[in-house]
Structure formats: structure tokens, C-alpha cells
Amino acid sequence: MSAVRFDYTGERVLVTGAAGLIGRALVRRFADAGAAVLAVDVDAGGLAVHDGDPRVATMPGDLAREDVADAVFARVARDGGLDVLVNNAAMTGLRTPFIDIDAGVWDAVIAANLRSAYLLSVRAVRHWRDAGRGGTIVSLSSPGGSRAHEDQSAYDVTKAGIEALSRAIAVELGGLGIRANCIAPASVGGEVRPATDLPAGRTTAPEEVADAALFLASPAASQLNGHVLRVDGGLHARLRTDPSEERRRESEDAGPRR
């Protein structure tokens, strides 16, 4: 997929979940647009995919921990500040019927997906407030933020929470020039394939999600705040989908799905 042209020269971008499929595309697109990117992920080995790119610095850590969030923003301060935060870190693979979820599993999903976004977002907005300047947060949601997946109740709750968090930031801090928006992608895989359950007829490339993030973080989206941008091939517009097709495709796809 050819990149959408945005200029982030001189800007500093923090991307979480940077070792995953969407995270790698986010880091690459922002770096290609001229940004200096700090790529963070709990998977230290996975961050090696960014080795050798002088535009990208990496930092491993569990972003659901306050001390790790503090360390990330200490580095942000040392590196000259922050312009864009992209909350992409998430635990996506767990599929358990709600009736079978124990509290430990529930808490782990909430921590990985929602607590991490809160810890970084609150530090970002404090950083911008204290610097007397604005900034932009882009968070990854999902169709599950507004509609239920089968056997993913904890995941869906976190995505609805991320959308609510973005609206709260927009309402409370928009007057300071701080924007917070979400992307809700559907059926993201490493290879674009036919998909009969999506009106577009195909799955979503991770680069298409990253291009949406570049748009939302740019001046072209300056009047978008508290918004959910659905990069889903028309999935949300359709009244009913074919769950058997969705499950079949998921079983074939080794990559994470939103």
C-alpha cells in the first residue's frame, strides 16, 4: 500500500504496542513521514524489528505499571518532549465465554488494554498542560467498542472504555489544544484477503490503520476531537454479518485482530 503523504518532520511520536502488526505499521508510517518515534512494547524481543532505523528509539516495558509509564515519560522529557501519543498496546488474542472468565483474566485484559492507555494519556496531557501547548492522542479501539464480539467481553469493555476516555479528554482538555480520537479497525491481517462479511469485500491492511492515525494526528483533523474513525470496510454500517465467515478467517489468520 502506498503511504498517504503527511509531514511530521521535527515532531516526536510515542507508539505503544510497537512490536505488533499494527504497531509496526504505525511506527514505520510516522517515521517515514519525518517523525522521531519512541516505540514501546512489553515484548522486548519483538521490538528488534525496529533495530537499525535511526528514526526509531525503542523501550521495553509493561505499560500497565505506573513505574514503567513514569520511565517512559522521563525519557520523553529527556528526548525533547512529545507531540503525538498513539495508544495501541492491547491484549487481543483471548477468547473466553463471559461465564468462564475468572477475575484474574479479566483484570489482566483491563490492565493491558485500558489501564495502560489511561496511564500514558494522563501523563501526556499533564506534559502538554505544563508546557503550555497542545498535543494529540490517537487510541486504537475496535468495532467491539460499540458492538459485541463472541467470547471477548473483557476486550470489548476495554475498547468501549478507551472511546469514553477519549471523549472525556476531548471535553475537559480541548480548550488547551489537546485532541483525543480513536480508530476502530476491523479484520486487520498481515495479508489482505477476501472477506464476505465486510461490505468492502476484503480485510484491512495494517498500513491503512496507520494512515488513519497520521490523519487524525495531523492539522487536517484539527476539528476532530472525541471522534471514532471506523476503518472497517463498512462493517459497522452493516446490520448483520456472517459470524461463521469471521470465525473461519480468524482461525486462518495468525496475526492479531481488532
Rank of each mutant, 00 (worst) to 15 (best):
D7Q: 08
G52W: 08
L235N: 00
Q152L: 08
H127M: 08
R12F: 08
S2E: 14
N113I: 13
D79M: 11
E172K: 09
V171G: 00
T241K: 05
V72M: 10
S187R: 15
T96N: 02
H227Y: 13
D232E: 10
S218K: 07
Y8A: 13
P185Q: 08
V13S: 02
P219L: 09
D151Y: 10
D100Q: 10
G20M: 03
R179L: 14
K159V: 14
V228F: 05
A154V: 10
D211G: 06
A44N: 02
F215G: 02
P185G: 07
S142Q: 11
I169D: 01
I137A: 04
A164F: 05
A112I: 12
L119W: 09
P185S: 06
H50D: 07
V138A: 05
F98W: 11
S166E: 09
R240Q: 13
T9N: 14
R12Q: 15
A48Q: 12
M1H: 06
G132T: 13
N113R: 09
L173S: 01
I99G: 00
A108C: 00
L229S: 01
M91N: 10
G134K: 11
G81I: 14
T136D: 09
L26T: 06
G190K: 05
G174S: 13
T241S: 14
G34N: 07
G201L: 10
T92P: 00
L82G: 03
P206F: 06
G255H: 13
V13N: 02
R179N: 12
A131M: 05
R65H: 12
L239C: 04
R126Q: 09
N225L: 09
M59P: 00
R75H: 06
E66W: 01
T58M: 02
D100P: 00
A108G: 03
G20H: 02
V37F: 03
V56K: 01
L239I: 14
I162M: 10
A3D: 13
A117D: 04
